[in-house]
């Protein structure tokens, strides 16, 4: 990706290891500002548009919070029903219109490739906040930041990705990004929800040690990072089958009994039954820090894009 000023953030694949490290280091400096302990006005006078064509409260709020913590402002799309979209306006036209109201555009859209298309119709930087089942690069960056920050680095980590690895876009992007680092990966999923073949092939082609299993308790003692995602009920035609699988991939005190003291458990949230509430009080639980990290990471990106390195 190289220089950040004015650049689009469309896919984590556009980020080299060096780019990722620039963002992580910038995000670290943003933490006290994100917590409100330090004031910063470097983005004063800048306006960010948030275009959310489908609801995603926490992503939208963390972008708004990030922009405002740096002294910038946000204009948001009203409810879709009230806008031109229902009148049949194309995304291309919407983007051309929004371009004149703001300095950068954050887009969440239900269709894959929407962010790349948007970027072609505006000179303003476009940040992809999720396009259908496609990319969600800022989620990946905050996941990486959490691992990096909690462990003091990413290299050397033994990381398991657990849950719905087939349909979960966050685990695909995270896997691709982790391949830029010196890690060992384990994919833990029920048979029908294992990681797509091309993702596993990519990992192996990069020379990253990879294990694939259905057995969660067996791998836990060896891990530094356990990243678990939600298994969606809709994927199972039979509710009994869902209940069985969901029960197998549930993190509780029992599963964590043999874990390393330093193991961190992450989850992109919202969780349903994947992590028992009893885990919240253990030193392993880092998913609330992870959720908070969305703000400093997005602050870092906005700051870099607007040319104001922290």
């Amino acid at each position: 990706m190289g220089g950040f000023t004015g650049r689009d953030v469309l896919s984590i694949a556009d980020f080299s290891r060096k780019d990722i490290e620039v963002v992580l280091k910038a995000a670290k400096k943003m933490v006290p500002i994100a917590r409100g302990e330090k004031a910063n006005r470097t983005l004063e006078g800048r306006i960010l548009s948030t275009l959310f064509f489908e609801p995603s409260t926490r992503t939208r709020l963390s972008f708004e919070s990030a922009m405002k913590r740096l002294g910038g402002d946000v204009v948001a799309f009203g409810p879709i029903e009230a806008s031109s979209i229902v009148k049949g306006e194309t995304l291309a036209d919407t983007i051309r219109m929004v371009e004149s109201y703001s300095d950068a555009i954050v887009l969440r859209h239900p269709q894959e490739g929407a962010a790349r298309l948007a970027a072609e119709f505006t000179e303003r930087p476009v940040i992809n906040a999720g396009d259908g089942a496609g990319q969600h690069p800022t989620q990946t960056l905050l996941d990486l930041f959490t691992i990096w920050d909690q462990r003091g680095g990413i290299d050397g980590a033994k990381i398991a990705l657990v849950g719905d690895l087939r349909y979960g876009r966050t685990v695909h992007s995270l896997t691709y990004a982790l391949c830029s680092f010196d890690v060992e990966l384990t994919f833990v999923a029920p048979a029908g929800l294992q990681m797509p073949k091309e993702v596993a092939e990519h990992v192996r082609a990069q020379g990253i040690p990879l294990a694939v299993t259905e057995d969660l308790p067996k791998v836990v003692p060896n891990l530094d990072v356990l990243y678990i995602t939600r298994i969606q009920k809709e994927r199972f035609p039979d509710p009994q089958e869902y209940a069985k699988v969901a029960g197998t991939y549930r993190i509780d005190a029992e599963v964590l009994r043999g874990a390393k003291k330093s193991l961190i458990v992450l989850h992109p949230l919202p969780r349903v039954d994947e992590i028992a509430p009893e885990v919240d009080a253990t030193p392993h639980a880092r998913y609330f820090e992870q959720a908070f990290n969305g703000v400093p990471v997005r602050m870092a990106l906005l700051s870099l894009i607007f040319g104001g390195a922290p």
Binding site: T90, G113, L117
Partner: peptide, 29 residues
Amino acid sequence: NCITNSREPVESVFLVRSKEPLRVRCQYC
């Protein structure tokens, strides 16, 4: 669900990853 299959004013773009065997990937999705 690819954006190029909606009523947007763009042409599809496929990147040729390999010619033998032929493998192409949509630049958008």
